[in-house]
């Protein structure tokens, strides 16, 4: 069965399709300008960053050959054929890896504690006054904008070589990163319990303890675990600047071309990061479902 489709008068169609065409053309023009600007930016950036595609093309084989070479032992055999020789330094590396995990753990723990005490000052709903909020926010911003390895470089000079500067650098970065996330969580809480606590005579910190903390704890813990995972990755390179952990062995192996050691240590790091990734994800899912269950 055919339906009659009402057809507009030609003049109206012409006007409408002209409007459609000009709207389309305007959209196309914007896209074109965007693409042009992007292209110019790419050219400039490529120039500044000394991008040399010819060199990349010519040396591309070196990446695969490098990645290949790290899987061969000194005697020319594949690493998998002689795992004992490949992981000759397993005891030492595991101990360094354990150091790395502990650096990440301590840095995350201290950082989370610091972030906990600072985050309330940076929120809209719980800061004592705008000046305090401004100061707290700028401080957190500073802590997370300066890369942790820069802090590590400075702390290595101040505290001496070893894991201590690594822990402190990770701690400061964690204060900044977690402080911001914690503050966002606190800004989303239900304020009624807080008002209730204050109305019954609680001090600020008592109100936080009994009305805010129960609401935010699962979220705080979940963010802290996520940060721990990131910090393990960060701690694995702290050794590059002398701040402890497995990075020291890794940079030595890369710099001195101990090929099979590079792959051995890299695989250890990747495995550790993956295991921690899986475990923290499990715990975080449980924490989040705990929160939704309430």
């Amino acid at each position: 069965m055919a339906h009659a489709i009402p057809r507009l008068p030609d003049t109206q169609i012409a006007a409408l399709s002209a409007a459609y065409r000009s709207a389309q053309a305007a959209k196309r023009r914007t896209t074109l300008i965007g693409v042009l600007v992007l292209a110019i930016l790419i050219m400039v950036a490529g120039r500044v960053a000394e991008v040399d595609l010819v060199k990349l093309w010519n040396n591309a084989g070196q990446l695969t050959s490098y990645l290949g070479r790290i899987f061969y032992l000194d005697n020319g055999k594949l690493v998998f054929t002689d795992v004992a020789d490949w992981y000759w330094g397993l005891g030492r590396w595991m101990s360094r890896l354990w150091d790395t995990l502990l650096i990440a753990y301590l840095g995350t723990l201290f950082g989370a504690i610091g972030a906990f005490f600072l985050c309330f000052a940076a929120t809209i709903n719980l800061a004592v006054n705008p000046a305090q909020r401004f100061l707290a926010r700028r401080f957190l911003e500073f802590c997370r904008t300066v890369p942790e390895i820069v802090f590590a470089l400075i702390f290595v000079v101040a505290f001496g070589l070893g894991p201590v500067p690594g822990v402190l650098a990770i701690m400061i970065h964690t204060v900044g990163a977690l402080g911001k996330l914690f503050a966002e969580v606190v800004e989303n809480i239900d304020m009624k319990p807080v008002e209730g606590a204050i109305a019954s005579g609680a001090t600020r910190w008592q109100a936080i303890r009994y009305s805010v903390v129960p609401q935010v704890l699962p979220n705080f813990a979940s963010y802290a675990l996520l940060r721990f995972e990131i910090n393990v990755r960060g701690a694995s390179v702290m050794g590059f600047v002398g701040a402890g952990g497995i990075g020291q062995d890794l940079i030595e192996a890369i710099r001195k071309f101990y090929y099979s050691d590079v792959s051995a240590i890299l695989l250890l790091i990747i495995a550790a990061v993956m295991i921690i990734d899986l475990v923290t994800e499990r715990i975080r899912h449980r924490l989040i479902s705990l929160e939704h269950g309430r």
Binding site: V48, A49, V51, Q62, L63, Y66, G234, L266, I269, I270
Partner: peptide, 20 residues
Amino acid sequence: GVDTLIWALIWINVVGLGPF
């Protein structure tokens, strides 16, 4: 799982020192 700094070290072996 591999940090940016480690990748930088590996790529330096391929294209040499420098921003590339």
